[in-house]
């Protein structure tokens, strides 16, 4: 008798979040990307459809990053000093499908740029580049409450993904995102309960759950990766079992964490950081990550190849 594989029947599914609006949908993006929509656990193609493959976005800053290791910076060269140039390089030289810009320069400790300056930058980026955009605030709650609504308004109709909303500071951001037709990043500190609570709080503001992408907070390989993995797994299991309040796609800030590991900064082993970032990313894809924010073009290349193989060669995984 042939071996019968056990298959689980899931009742829930992850919502689909679209990032970027084309002219057809009232925006100016050249295309849009879709994340989420899973009806099964990662890689278990036979238990339910996994319609959208994980996406990778390049992370860029509005100011010259001062804590990025040389290994990451050197490929970008001088373009890291100019956000537009940097963005164009990611797209043209490294085939970025989407971009994630962090407006660190608005942070009171890192330049304290005004909301108006940042609005002009975002407007310029939207005009000059066509890829879908993920926009992050400065990380300072008070500043982001001024900055993000302005950014959201400036990018109205472009269906950006804007973040991050946290439990202490979600109201102003949610209101802006809701009014201007974007989606939101809900960030929780490696805690399923808080992730869920934040989703409920945001949806209580009127922003539908289908426009929330969860940032579960992750640790890089060797720095709590397994903890992040199990939290994501728990959330995903709950979502697939029918809990709508956690049925949102995951965004994972892989580059930021991987390049903080001391193993990534060993000068004598320049490849090690790339491998560290790629490994962290692939492990998280297996945990259910839908959108990975990465830094090193070579790591992105490896991960993209991995995603391609994983999502097109499902025959290898399930013989029939």
């Amino acid at each position: 008798m042939a071996l019968q594989l056990m298959t689980e029947k899931w009742t829930g599914e992850i919502s689909v979040v679209t990032i970027g609006a084309t002219s057809k949908n009232g925006g100016t993006r050249s295309y849009s990307i879709k994340i989420g929509g899973e009806k099964s656990l990662p890689c278990l193609f036979k238990e339910g459809t996994l319609p959208n493959k994980p996406q990778v976005a390049f992370e860029i800053f509005d100011v010259t990053p001062n804590d990025w290791p040389n290994e990451v910076i050197k490929l970008y060269g001088k373009s890291v000093n100019d956000p537009l140039e940097w963005a164009q390089m990611c797209i043209q030289d490294f085939k970025a499908q989407s971009l994630c810009i962090r407006l660190l320069g608005a942070h009171p400790d890192f330049g304290n740029k005004s909301a108006e300056e940042e609005v002009q930058l975002i407007k310029k980026l939207l005009k000059e580049i066509g890829v879908p955009l993920i926009i992050l605030g400065s990380g300072d709650d008070a500043k982001d409450n001024l900055l993000l609504p302005a950014i959201s308004e400036a990018a109205k109709g472009e269906r950006c993904l804007i973040g991050s909303a946290v439990q202490d500071n979600y109201k102003t951001i949610s209101a802006g995102v809701l009014a201007d037709g974007h989606s939101i990043i809900a960030e929780s500190p490696i805690d399923v309960n808080i992730a869920k609570q934040l989703n409920i709080l945001i949806s209580d503001m009127g922003l539908p759950l289908e426009r929330i992408v969860m940032n579960p907070t992750i640790g890089a390989l060797g720095y709590g990766l397994e903890y992040a993995y199990s939290i994501m797994e728990r959330a995903r299991l709950a979502a697939l079992s029918g809990d709508k309040t956690v049925a949102c796609p995951f965004i994972c800030f892989v580059g930021q964490e991987a390049w903080r590991a001391k193993e990534s900064k060993v000068e004598a082993l320049p490849e090690q950081g790339i491998i560290w970032e790629a490994l962290t990313a692939t492990a998280l894809i297996q945990a259910g990550a839908d959108l990975l924010i990465m830094r090193h073009p070579k790591a992105v290349e490896k991960v993209s190849r991995y995603i391609e193989n994983l999502m097109t060669n499902d025959k290898i995984l399930s013989p029939k």
Partner: peptide, 13 residues
């Protein structure tokens, strides 16, 4: 306990 730290509960169902 952690899941109950919400009004009324994290599990609204």
């Amino acid at each position: 306990y952690m899941a109950a730290l919400f009004f009324p509960h994290t599990d609204l169902n």
